[in-house]
């Protein structure tokens, strides 16, 4: 009787392990495809920001809340014309963060931005991601337009801009290790 709890616990642990192995197998097959899908979305967004043929583009892996950072250099030179950040922040959904691409020119003006991944509520948070949040210069968010009723998603988007604003000067000054 005393060992029943332990046996049940072990059975639960075993079932959990089997499920974990099954998930890792599925992940092995789907992860490359998911990466492809996400890259396609990102490059489609980059195309909307700049004419890609005009630049030499290099990629750097970001740390923490930053994903891939795309560095746009004038063709044939080492001058950074713009940096596009993949940046994440917590929105309403607990499982997935809001992920944005934010394109900043060398004069700190914001070229454009786009939410590339989110799992916010359909009809609420998910519908505001295409909004104009009124950010034209990365180090000045005083005019940021939050959407009332969708505070958490708005805050996540504002956090993304803030994170980029905090590092852009250093990155333009050569802080990125390519």
């Amino acid at each position: 009787m005393k060992n029943n709890g332990l046996v049940s616990g072990l059975v639960l642990l075993t079932i959990g392990l089997v499920c974990g192995i099954l998930l890792s197998v599925v992940n092995y097959f789907t992860a490359p495809k998911i990466k492809e899908v996400e890259d396609a979305i990102k490059y489609a967004a980059l195309e909307e920001f700049y004419t890609l043929a005009d630049y030499d583009i290099s990629e750097v892996s970001g740390e923490g809340d930053f994903g891939t950072i795309f560095i746009f250099k004038e063709k044939g030179t080492e001058t950074i014309d713009a940096i596009v950040y993949t940046v994440r922040a917590q929105g309403y959904s607990d499982s997935t963060k809001v992920e944005m691409l934010i394109a900043v020119n060398s004069d700190l003006t914001v070229q454009d931005y786009k939410v590339v991944s989110q799992q916010e509520t359909t009809g609420f948070g998910a519908d505001i991601v295409d909004n104009d949040f009124n950010v034209s210069v990365i180090d000045d968010l005083s005019g940021f337009d939050s959407v009332s009723g969708v505070t958490k998603t708005s805050n996540a988007i504002k956090t993304c801009f803030t994170l980029v604003g905090e590092r852009i000067a250093s990155d333009l000054g050569g802080g990125l290790n390519e």
Binding site: C19, L23, K33, Q118, Q119, E120, T121
Partner: peptide
């Protein structure tokens, strides 16, 4: 939860538009 996670991964990989539309 395991079965739902499989559905989520497969949808994300093969039907991304539907995955983003159904969201959370």
């Amino acid at each position: 939860a395991t079965l739902v996670t499989i559905v989520e991964m497969v949808m994300h990989a093969f039907t991304p538009a539907l995955y983003f539309s159904l969201g959370v």
